[in-house]
Write a protein that binds this DNA or RNA. Structure first.
Lengths: 348, 348
DNA sequence: ATTGCCGGGCCGGACAGTACAGGATAGGGA
DNA sequence: TCCCTATCCTGTACTGTCCGGCCCGGCAAT
């Protein structure tokens, strides 16, 4: 028995022939005659059997492939991949590392996208080759690719690997790509984006609090430079620009240790939570008062920082996830800047 | 015994046959059945054994040769040359939801496992069908499956879907399975596990602080029952048992609202961070003092709770990830109870 | 009425990948 | 020598993929 015997299409001149083929396959699936992983007739076989042009069958199969009902394997044939015909939106959410902030972005993204979707989260640990692996392995299998590009800023300036990343990203259809968090100036084309303007954001946020900041004698930023997960250098640039333009004495240190020297009138800007913790502990140990003797501005807000009265400069993580989801839901291709602001609390 | 008996290839019509041969050899290497310098079947032997064209086998062997997995010696045969690069451990890390605690477990797991490994993180949002999908789709592709089984406790008691979950888990080879966090009493077999004894843990931790707890007039637990992400009911059981056995008046509420009534001498146990936040805010608004008028014990520790002086009962998340990684690294099949303890701070 | 445009349908060709069936050659080992 | 080995070769036949061109009918603007 030939495979083509399974397929039945009824000729109705009112509807296009390729549509009849599509409906025929769908019907054979829903009636249970075609099951998952079954092979369906080749283009040649079907076109000869029903006296159709090869092109017509090809068109029908392409529609089914776009709907992800069937998959094609070059040189072998077409195979049924899905029997449930509800079309879920599949998203690949690719992030460099898993922090509580990234987590909030992911969660708000998923909940805004709603139930008729599935998003896979993958983490590439700032590793270029792992990033490329994940992207090539999962290439073309998703409807959307939400990507946060953050890589190790190698001192050796490996042009090759950065180029490879850009080439891999270029292979993704622009309509399916959403760049998050870190905007890539080197990537050409018109794709969607929800970005932080790291340099400008910190500059304007600090400027907003300039009057209070002026009361401090020195500003010290704890910028984790030696971390395996680098933060954008532009944070530093923005901070420096703010200090220089306002003629404020400043300093940049790697980390806040238990014995980091601090004086009355110091204002600390912390990025890592661990630095914040050891800083607050030290301030308490020395009997100093936050917001009077020592000032703290922390990067990235959390509810518990609110309780602690820590002044923060922060982007809106939930908004970032929502924005990305809405770009997908509304099929918009825009570059959206995520809101960033200074939230003044007792520690400043 | 013929050499060909070692090689197993599974016939999947979608995948090209030469690729199946390649995968089969790789699998035999990574499972340790084929070691370095071993001879693999000749082209003729394999083609006859599996009724394949010689050309197909040749193609597969050429791919392996290009990848430098095997070397050919004219007139002799093919020999395995590399096993190191292939023996990268692949892990599927399957969790119900993404919280900051799960994140810490994941991060400590990955860092303990080290560089010669790759772990994919997937989230099934407490959804049984999604869980089954992820498991069947990725079946047999990983070396280890680290799974946190938490599902919606449906009031309707869908035996069917629970059964399906157990059957799906049963299909995973016991040596590859590590159950985390929530122990499944219903799952038979000897598999590895790192579990919390939710009922016993909270009972003993609270008993540890009994003297201080006795000073409070009433104990109120905020247990989020209506959440889409349910917490194990055994937390409640353990709490109730503690209260009943010590003859302490208690109460269980869903959530802490802005207008939740609270009296002098109330001790709150919070699970969700949002409950903790609104509770602390209320206490402050009413001019009450934490640890004197109102007590708080929070579930799950974080560095910022330490700063806030919040007494916690908590498992050691970092340890949990480390334990799971060590079970894999040392190839141990044991059931490990994760440490749980009461950390007394000012709020009690 | 003519024109341009678009989509359905058809035709055939070029290309690449899969799989098979051989044959020819050179080397290894007993 | 004989049998097995890898290697390279030419075919054949099928597969999906992509291309340009063709016809036709409907549809809207000129």
């Amino acid at each position: 028995m030939k495979v083509t015997d399974h397929i039945h299409i009824k000729d109705d001149s009112r509807i296009p022939k390729y549509q009849q083929i599509v409906d025929g396959i769908i019907e054979n699936i829903s009636s249970g005659q075609l099951k998952i992983d079954d092979k369906i007739p080749s283009i040649n076989a079907l076109s000869e059997h029903f006296l159709l042009s090869r092109d017509t069958v090809e068109k029908a199969y392409n529609i089914l492939k776009d709907r992800k009902v069937i998959t094609s394997v070059k040189g072998k044939g077409f195979y049924i991949t899905r029997t449930k015909l509800i079309s879920k939106v599949n998203v690949l959410f690719l992030i460099n590392k898993l922090s509580s902030y990234k987590m909030r972005i992911y969660n708000s993204f998923v909940s805004r996208l709603g139930g008729n979707s599935h998003t896979d989260l993958h983490i590439y640990h700032c590793d270029e080759s792992l990033f490329l692996n994940l992207l090539t392995k999962n290439s073309m299998a998703y409807d959307y690719y939400v990507i946060m590009p953050h890589f190790k800023t190698s001192a050796l300036h490996h042009i090759s690997s950065t180029d490879e990343v850009l080439r891999a990203l270029g292979k993704i259809p622009e309509s399916k790509l959403i760049i998050m968090d870190n905007d890539l100036q080197q990537l050409p084309g018109t794709y969607a984006e929800v970005y932080q303007d790291f340099e400008g954001d910190i500059y304007t946020a600090l400027t907003q609090g300039l009057e209070k900041i002026k009361n401090y004698r020195r500003i010290i930023m704890a910028y984790p430079a030696r971390s395996v997960y680098p933060y954008p250098k532009r944070i530093l640039h923005g901070f420096r620009r703010f200090c220089v333009e306002n003629k404020l004495p400043f300093e940049v240190i790697d980390e806040i240790y238990d014995d980091t020297v601090m004086h009355d009138g110091d204002l600390f800007i912390t990025i890592e939570e661990s630095d914040l913790v050891s800083l607050v502990k030290q301030v308490r140990d020395k009997g100093m008062v936050l917001g009077e003797d020592i000032g703290i501005i922390s990067y990235n807000d959390t509810p518990l920082k609110d309780l602690l009265g820590i002044t923060v400069i922060s982007t809106d993580f939930d908004q970032m996830g929502r924005s990305a989801a809405e770009l997908i839901l509304e099929k918009r291709v825009e570059k959206v800047k995520n809101p960033f602001r200074l939230i003044e609390r007792e520690s400043l």
